[in-house]
Write a protein that binds this DNA or RNA. Sequence first.
DNA 1: TAATATACTGTATAATTATACTAGAAGAAG
DNA 2: CTTCTTCTAGTATAATTATACAGTATATTA
Lengths: 149, 149
Amino acid sequence: MKKKERHQLLRQLVQQETIRKQEDFVNKLLDRGIEVTQATISRDIKELQLIKVPAKDGGYQYNLPPEMNYNISKKLGRLMKDAFVSIDTQKEFVLVKTLPGNAFALGTLIETANYKEVFGCISGDDTVLIICRDEESAERFQRRIISFI
Amino acid sequence: MKKKERHQLLRQLVQQETIRKQEDFVNKLLDRGIEVTQATISRDIKELQLIKVPAKDGGYQYNLPPEMNYNISKKLGRLMKDAFVSIDTQKEFVLVKTLPGNAFALGTLIETANYKEVFGCISGDDTVLIICRDEESAERFQRRIISFI
DNA sequence: TAATATACTGTATAATTATACTAGAAGAAG
DNA sequence: CTTCTTCTAGTATAATTATACAGTATATTA
């Protein structure tokens, strides 16, 4: 487990789970068989610029950095409305066609959004290939994306 | 010094000064002759949902809540471009005319932005009256606002 | 390869932040 | 005014987070 992978995982965790303190991270990682200490998490958090947000419900919760977290879906929506051409799925793959030059931006947004359905994605000039976790995820993800248009 | 006032002040401080830890708040307030303890600040921060952001430069810094902080000026810019009609100053007052129905939104944004020149503001349907700290502030604020158009 | 520099992480602990508890202040109701 | 309730805030301390230090690993250079 390299630092980069761990960081990636932390970004996912912070979106999928409720992380109230750094030890929660430690434990979630432990669940996945990854051993790290709170100190390491503290440093990771600093590098990733994760923030601890006072929640409405009285507690606290870690979150993605504001710029990253804020209105990604709004940006996605705008870009989709502007540049979407077509979409199709095949097994666990989703292929989105965009107007020329827009695929990279779309791919970046999709990666940043960190959807749990998505395993990874590759962007060309007018095509984004999204590799989902499985067939079902791909369909769910397709619906998600289409709903932006 | 009521809690509300202190909260208001904290919002200003967090924008005008570099606050690295809660004690910095305590000290800044002390500078202004207001005595509170770190515990109170901690509770204030929770209520205001201020966040502690890992800064690029290695340290940490408190910030406004993401939604509030994020791109207020972008919103202001958009609204000004859309709805601005005229502006004028008189002593420490600035009067902005907007298209009907837009003044309230503008006023809210101006208040949220927490410009240090601004003492307060009142919005009608197509007019926002901004009361600045003094004549000079009013002019500075006018320039600020005009630059959005 | 050896030497040196750089990156990563755990341990221990310092630094910071949150909160249980308590008490006084400010209001509301009688 | 008295009693009850709610809100605030300080004190002391628990809980959480950051970091100095040291060791190991990994990369870089000669």
